[in-house]
Nucleic acid binder design. Structure first.
Lengths: 206, 206
DNA sequence: CTTAGAACCACCCTTTTGTGTAGTTACCGG
DNA sequence: CCGGTAACTACACAAAAGGGTGGTTCTAAG
């Protein structure tokens, strides 16, 4: 028996989800909440296996609510169930600790499947959400006008090494390191170590 | 009709995959290859929609092969189909440009479903792979948690700002910035801006 | 009320980094 | 053979960052 709580402000959606779950073998909807605030108060008594969470809620958002609930009860799997396909909502939800992200147009049988997946150690996502997530890993093939040596030095920089340490590790002079770093800065259009590391990390170009 | 090429060194697997695909409505296996090298030579003539790619191959690995093929033909969707559930293999595959990652124990109907998903803009992944990917976003609830102000300053540091700029933006004194940064370094157990940025980015604690 | 922690400010001094300028060596392609 | 480019070395000065020490104020918890 999989126990589920719903946090959703729209009455129609909330009630039809509850009916769907209670009408499905091995599924039980323990409770439904209109706001995160009310859910946070009661969820420790409910102890659901899974929460279906809306994002746009009155008061605390579903994303903030996810953070709070996962902090109190890390074992609960939280699946976002929302209309939003906004990239920030998706990444913020996953950062907050949600294990899945479904659009509200997910058909009932897929939703049931997704909940099963969540409790079995999966990460149910709508198709386009999964693609967004996967694409966020892709290296930018962009301005790779960095030479092999420069890339090597940039990699060391990103590990937090000082010029002196890099010089030691690559068996080159401190001045040579400075020389290469100047060229790296020019190519990345930055003028400090911090900016270079930030840019390198953001664009995955190490 | 979805056109597929297979790159897989194991003869049995390669041939049974081809039979499965050719026996499925709307699917056609265009070609099969034992190595990436041979595939790279011919794939421009094949123009498949999807490639099923093994990772452990003689010669160029499936991950390197993915990089090369995606560079030549970015429109091809590459799905890794491998025995490996090694975390590095997974992330390197996605970084290389694969849109999906399936374990070899994926049942035939799921594989067919996954290929359809790939061509329709999805990112098919085995359940545990998806969870790994999603978990990689989760913020670490680290032991030495930073105060709100410290987090704010660390975020600015990660944008590549100098102390002076941070002081200006937060309307505080340069010395105060230094004070906070010292505390950040102590908590993160680092002793330079580079290390702090690197650590902050790696553990996504901004 | 006391205490601890957060946020703030100020000096001082050293090390690291950023930048300008000025070369040498080696290899590769036209 | 020449020109371009990568890789390397060197010196000098200014700016930024790192580390030590001293303080004040405010607020929240005991």
């Amino acid at each position: 028996m999989i126990k589920i709580s719903i946090i959703e402000d729209d009455k129609d959606i909330r009630e039809s989800l509850a009916i769907l779950l209670n009408g499905t073998l091995d599924f039980e909807c323990l409770s439904t909440y209109v706001t995160c605030e009310s859910a946070i108060d009661k969820i420790e008594d409910d102890k659901p296996d899974v929460i279906l969470m809306d994002i746009n809620l009155p008061g605390i958002s579903g994303i903030e609510g996810t953070k709070i609930i996962k902090k109190k009860l890390p074992a609960i799997e939280i699946i976002m169930l929302t209309i939003s396909d906004n990239e920030n909502d998706i990444f913020n939800s996953l950062c907050a600790g949600a294990c899945g992200y479904l659009k509200k147009n997910t058909p009932p049988h897929k939703l049931i499947e997704a909940i099963k997946e969540a409790v079995n150690g999966g990460a149910p996502m709508s198709m386009d959400v999964a693609r967004l997530v996967v694409n966020s890993f892709k290296k930018e093939t962009r301005k790779n006008d960095l030479t092999a040596r420069e890339t090597e030095i940039l990699r060391n920089l990103c590990d937090g090494s000082s010029y002196k340490k890099i010089a030691g590790e690559l068996f080159i002079d401190l001045n040579t390191v400075k020389f290469h770093i100047r060229n790296i800065y020019r190519k990345l259009e930055v003028n400090s170590k911090g900016e270079a590391i930030a840019k390198a990390m953001k664009e995955n170009l190490t």
